[in-house]
Amino acid sequence: MVDESKLREKAAEVLAREDVRRLIGWKRGTYGFEAAPCVIKDASEAEALIFDPTCVQNPASFITLEEKKPVPRGQEADTRKIAVMVKGCDSRAIVQQLVEKAYDRDHVIVLGIPCLGVIDRRKAAALFGDVASQVSAKVDAEKVAVDVGGDVKTVDRKDILMDKCLRCRYPNPLVYDELLADEVEKWAGDEFADVGEFEGQSPEEKWAFWEEQFSKCIRCYSCRNVCPMCYCVECVVTKLQPQWTRRATDISENTVYHIQRAWHLAGRCIECMECQRVCPVDIPIMTLNRKLTRDVKEMFEYEPGVDVEAQPLLASYNPQDPEDFIM
């Protein structure tokens, strides 16, 4: 576990540097199992920073969310760095953004935090119900200790941690300037058993499942906006000329939206699972992403977000790529 006082100290030290503009980390949320990602600009605010298993959000998303306003004539753009705290999975987003040249490596200062898992709010609600008071938690290799208003309960990891954590392959940050705690030992592998199970169904069964799921979608685009890899300034789904997807919410447009979204993450999804977490109508979005992740791994031996020197999957090719289903 990371020592929070050390984390705050480090944050304050980084923020005090002249070439640093802001720092993205987490602070305690206003209720229940919530943590809030926060962007701080002054070393004095570093006191609010925390890191514990409630810190689910991926801070890498906020690097690219910041709007670039036109610089007034006679002024110069602020090119100071952004510092960002990352867990293992979050760091993969930074790697992939660097692979895609979203920004330069010099642009960010990465403070890595080895992580043993974060809490799934839905699982927590099933265990604890609707919690109003602020919750903190501790996690180790066996258990999660949840502190609800002074009342500490110990819970089994699989009952409360996010699914991504139970099969986490990269608990330690893959890119960082400084590591804020000792590396942790990897505890799991990923066999993509869930993907295989879903694939076993007939096309009719699969569609029946997705038809129900997609028809719930209200197209709030939260899954898109929260995604650290969805950082296009202009998105294909909001374009009007040509209009690829209509704004109408019906099964036809919703399906096409979800196919587009998943497709644009082919070979890019770093499995932070934020899309599924934020969905207000509980669509299992990762089921689509994980299918592609597995296929990309098997067919092209490619894994996004692990190697800064890698080529983007769809901007490269191998003459020996599989093609047995091509006529």
Partner: peptide, 13 residues
């Protein structure tokens, strides 16, 4: 606003 995702959850719901 620094952590806002610009999504439609708050308004659509």
């Amino acid at each position: 606003s620094d952590r806002c995702l610009s999504c439609g959850i708050c308004t659509f719901l």
